[in-house]
Amino acid sequence: MRRAQPWLGTFVEIDVDLDDTQLAGIAMGSAFERIGSIHAAMSYHSPDSDLSRLNRAAAGVAIRVDADTWTVLCMAAELHADSDGLFDCAIAGTLVLEGLLPASGGVESGSGTQAGIELPEPGVVRKHCSSHLDLGGIAKGYAVDAAVAVLQRFGITSGSVNAGGDMRVFGPVPRPIHVRDPREPSRLLRLADLQDAALATSGGYFVRRDTGTAKSALVDPFRRQCVATDASVSVLAPTCLLADALTKVVALSGDVYHPLLAARGAQALWLGAETTVRHQGRQARIAG
């Protein structure tokens, strides 16, 4: 049984193998609710979300956030440290400057890095500088994992959750992952069989704006610039959060053998004719 609902800025599809359609319906409904609450907590655009409150918060002020937001921030901090700063959620300021995110709540230029986010105790976050966070690079994967956990709690042993290409499959049956054959749109190419694993892809970073210029939502945290890469990076990982987050590490480092992959039981696939990384867009302001 398959259902889809719009969440996380995309369509989330849940597929479960269960003959009992009533139980499947209830389990999927709960999984969608779980995704909805994660969306509500971590949406950049919703002024009431944990994330927006945190972005508006002054440095030094302790902010209470829900367990999901706190967990995602912990994972983000871990990945920030393990990737030597390459994975960084505190890049919303750059996205705002580039016009890829709206300026919200009077926060224009958070210039701090993820390292300026302190997580003193469960459910509490404190910024030590004007960090402006966007959890887009990790929260979608987290939501997929959370939805899978809900389905499994309902006793569903086989299924998949797919949030617009960030997906996780579970159960004894390997599921073929397909890409569309551009030569023949009605045909699909089999990319891999996925079993108890997650896959996320970052690609097609060019975003044509009304102005005709191309911009990218991938931010180099060191240069504070949007990066445009021609490549598409797919990461296979034990969880969708890791797959989602690690695509950024691979895309930014250009290294499909980045040590963090192996350390986390992941592997990357780089699809692209070029591996050159171009920087574009004006220099973001970096506050002293």
């Binding site: 996380l8 995309t10 969306h39």
Partner: peptide, 12 residues
């Protein structure tokens, strides 16, 4: 509102 997400590339 929506979380910003990466572009998508793979079929399930």
């Amino acid at each position: 509102a929506a979380l910003p997400v990466a572009a998508i590339a793979v079929a399930a």
